[in-house]
Simulated scan of single mutants.
Amino acid sequence: MAWLFSLSAECGTQTQAELFLAYFQKLSWTLQDGKTITTVPEVMEDNDGNWWCMVVPQGLSENSVKSDEDTPQMREIGNLLYASLWNAPDFRYALLGIEVDLFRTLSELLEDTTIGEQPSNFAGLVLAESIWDLINRPETFQIFKPGYVWIPYPD
């Protein structure tokens, strides 16, 4: 069985999601093994009426994760995607991983008390500071970039 590896970002409005999509449509990288990775982003609306952009890297086992052999490539691509968030248009929160599309609506995220209590379940979660404020600024978050915090992956 294959699993989809992607970056999902909740952007709020359709316009903001489309700006995010346009940014990621232009990106491509050559990995250490020589493989070229491009991204195929798409926008979608969630049940709360908020807009997301899901970014799927193309070239990783035909867009999906099939075995542990994909892990080094996933780590390398993940680092590239997180680095790309530094220059990406504004978003409210984002997560990279397997099967993370629409991982939490804003209302679900705001109600989820486990973010502060069990941060390891949310490793890689990036929040705009305005969202971090709404969930009472759990101390487990660190600065990601100006205006954003995150729960880093363990080394």
Rank of each mutant, 00 (worst) to 15 (best):
1 M>E: 08
3 W>I: 14
4 L>R: 12
8 S>F: 14
10 E>F: 06
10 E>I: 08
11 C>S: 13
12 G>R: 14
14 Q>H: 12
14 Q>F: 08
19 L>H: 14
19 L>Y: 14
20 F>H: 12
20 F>N: 05
20 F>T: 06
21 L>F: 06
21 L>K: 09
22 A>M: 09
22 A>D: 15
24 F>A: 05
27 L>A: 01
28 S>N: 09
29 W>I: 03
30 T>V: 11
30 T>Y: 00
32 Q>H: 11
33 D>R: 07
34 G>C: 06
35 K>R: 14
35 K>Y: 03
36 T>I: 14
37 I>D: 00
38 T>P: 01
40 V>S: 08
41 P>Q: 05
44 M>S: 15
46 D>T: 04
47 N>W: 05
48 D>H: 09
49 G>L: 10
51 W>V: 14
53 C>D: 08
54 M>S: 05
54 M>L: 04
54 M>Q: 05
54 M>G: 00
54 M>T: 08
55 V>H: 00
56 V>N: 08
59 G>D: 12
61 S>Q: 11
61 S>E: 09
63 N>E: 13
66 K>Y: 04
66 K>M: 10
68 D>C: 01
69 E>P: 00
70 D>V: 01
70 D>F: 02
72 P>K: 11
73 Q>R: 01
74 M>T: 06
75 R>K: 13
78 G>R: 00
79 N>I: 03
82 Y>M: 04
87 N>V: 00
88 A>K: 07
88 A>T: 04
88 A>M: 03
90 D>F: 11
91 F>C: 05
92 R>I: 12
98 I>N: 04
98 I>Y: 06
100 V>M: 13
101 D>P: 01
106 L>T: 09
106 L>A: 04
107 S>M: 03
107 S>Q: 12
107 S>G: 09
108 E>F: 08
108 E>W: 10
109 L>Q: 15
109 L>E: 15
110 L>K: 13
111 E>V: 02
113 T>S: 10
113 T>E: 13
114 T>Y: 10
115 I>T: 10
116 G>W: 14
117 E>S: 10
117 E>N: 13
117 E>V: 10
117 E>F: 13
118 Q>W: 06
119 P>F: 11
122 F>C: 07
123 A>I: 00
125 L>A: 08
125 L>I: 13
128 A>M: 07
130 S>D: 15
132 W>Y: 14
133 D>I: 14
134 L>C: 08
135 I>Y: 12
137 R>W: 10
137 R>T: 14
139 E>A: 10
140 T>H: 14
140 T>Y: 08
142 Q>Y: 02
142 Q>S: 12
144 F>T: 02
144 F>R: 01
147 G>N: 12
148 Y>G: 04
148 Y>K: 05
149 V>F: 13
150 W>V: 08
150 W>E: 06
152 P>Y: 05
152 P>Q: 08
152 P>N: 07
154 P>W: 07
155 D>E: 09
155 D>R: 05
